[in-house]
């Protein structure tokens, strides 16, 4: 059976969402002072880099940028087995930083739980905020995003896919119905 695919965001839409999120982050935190961005592999790290560039263009500040791989903090080793472990790179102290976690799609919230546990192992941020490009609902944990590109109501059977080109620039978000 052919799968029905709908484009939710095109490249221009993604760029606008990232620009708006960058503005919101600066507004809520009153500038870039004490901020840090940490993207969740894979997908969130690319978005974090774009948000970081946009913040630099808007405010002229360079916000420290890190990436976190949450494989070591997963809760489903027994069910899904040993998935490849990516690199975590947080080359700055997290203590007393306002950390914005960046992910592509917010779904059950379990990835975010794992990412927060990882951050806590690196230091003691003054707060952790969450930015996602797509919030598709179906939370299994009490987690919500502070910055959302687009809210997309979905059924559990549907899939959300963020596509990148060869240069890792996000070009499209698709909703795939089974």
């Amino acid at each position: 059976m052919a799968k029905a695919e709908t484009i939710i965001l095109n490249q221009a839409g993604i760029t606008r969402a990232i620009t708006r999120i960058a503005h919101e982050i600066l507004e809520i935190n009153r500038g870039g002072e004490g901020l840090a961005l940490v993207g969740i592999r894979t997908g969130g790290d690319t978005l974090a880099k774009l948000i970081c560039q946009r913040i630099s263009e808007i405010e002229g500040v360079d916000v420290p940028l890190g990436t976190v791989d949450i494989t070591m903090y997963r809760d489903d080793l027994a069910a899904r087995g040993s998935l490849p472990v990516g690199k975590t790179e947080i080359p700055f102290p997290l203590d007393d930083k306002k950390v914005v976690l960046v992910d592509d799609v917010l779904f059950t919230g379990r990835t975010i739980r794992a990412a927060m546990d990882a951050l806590m192992d690196f230091g003691r941020p003054s707060c952790i905020q969450l930015s996602v490009l797509i919030d598709r609902g179906h939370r299994e944990l009490p987690i919500r995003a502070d910055y959302v590109g687009r809210n997309v109501p979905t059924s559990l059977e549907e899939q959300i896919e963020l596509l990148f080109d060869e240069d890792m620039v996000p070009v499209e978000v698709r909703l795939i119905k089974p």
Binding site: M72, Y73, R74, L77, S82, V85, T88, D121
Partner: peptide, 20 residues
């Protein structure tokens, strides 16, 4: 590759992850 990713843990202040 997996070892290379795990190596970073050994340079952290808190040298422990909950994986196993």
């Amino acid at each position: 590759d997996t070892a290379e990713s795990f190596k970073e843990i050994n340079s952290r202040d808190i040298k422990k992850v909950p994986t196993l």
